[in-house]
Design a protein around this nucleic acid. Sequence first.
DNA 1: AAGGCGGGGTG
DNA 2: CACCCAGCCTT
Length: 346
Amino acid sequence: MTDEFIQPLLAWYDENKRILPWRDKHNAYYTWVSEIMLQQTRVEAVKPYFERFIRELPDIPALAVCPEEKLLKLWEGLGYYSRVRNMQLAAREMVEKYNGRLPEDFSLLISLKGIGSYTAGAIASIAYGIPVPAVDGNVFRVVTRMTEDSEDITRPAFRKKTESALQEIIPKDRPGDFNQAMMELGAVVCVPNGQPKCDLCPVRGFCQAGLHGTMEKFPVKAPKKPRVVEERTVLVIQDGSCTAIRKRPPKGLLAGLYELPNTEGYLNREEALEYVKELGAEPLYIEELPEARHIFSHIEWRMKAYRIRVSSLEQTHIPGILFADKKESERNYAIPSAFGAYEKYM
DNA sequence: AAGGCGGGGTG
DNA sequence: CACCCAGCCTT
């Protein structure tokens, strides 16, 4: 039974797998970097980031010693920035304990920062041929449709159950290809958001949902909490060609990235001018900028904004605030997409 | 078990 | 608009 399922799946994968910059390279570092980038992030978004990251940091020792600002700059716009901080922590541990290499062992891999059950399985199987499953969102979708399983996939217990089931059938000669085939199937055939392409599926004969036409009922997930709306005021404070930016705190949302000074709530012109004075600058004039909105996974920012020209920036040294011209900030400072609407005013 | 943590694609 | 994406960490 398992062979009847696995052989067509692997044959389909051999014929139809996408060419990806990290695929079939026999380089565990590439596998690791790509898997971290691919967490909650689409293949097309990852491609250019991966190429640049490998070019700048070609191996684990290079990653281990990379300055924070450069690291964040390489991740700018990808989101979930703790991924790259954790990756550097793991790289340093590999330099110290594993001769600068990824350990060839599932338990050691999963003990590293930022490497969980899925990523450890992916690296172990793809890079080292170790027969362990790698269960991501694609695999959840494929498996729950195949079996018409209505259990909530967000429950940790369901992940364990799925991993155990796949551990039993994973082919020991091609574990990495099997895991990638399951994910590839989920990504291009057994797709989310609407009708899957069951006519293209190599294993449709084994799929209960396909046979019953219930594909879109799976997978079942518990509803998410609604987003919190936050009103903020963003300030583009500038003198000539320089604009004020500041580094965000080391923990929490957008940790360690740079931002335009901004504050909770909607400020009117007078309050905005007062805010700038408190920062230690002398405002010359103020101009209202268009409103903007940014959606995070759990927060929505609704932003009002002002451009405020000030005099003698060089005389203002506010703790934590620095002034940079557009080129300088583009080159050296990672600024998240949330401020994208105001970049043109910098 | 639940919540924090980005950004963008898609129907 | 809602949903989801090659998830992990902290509490």
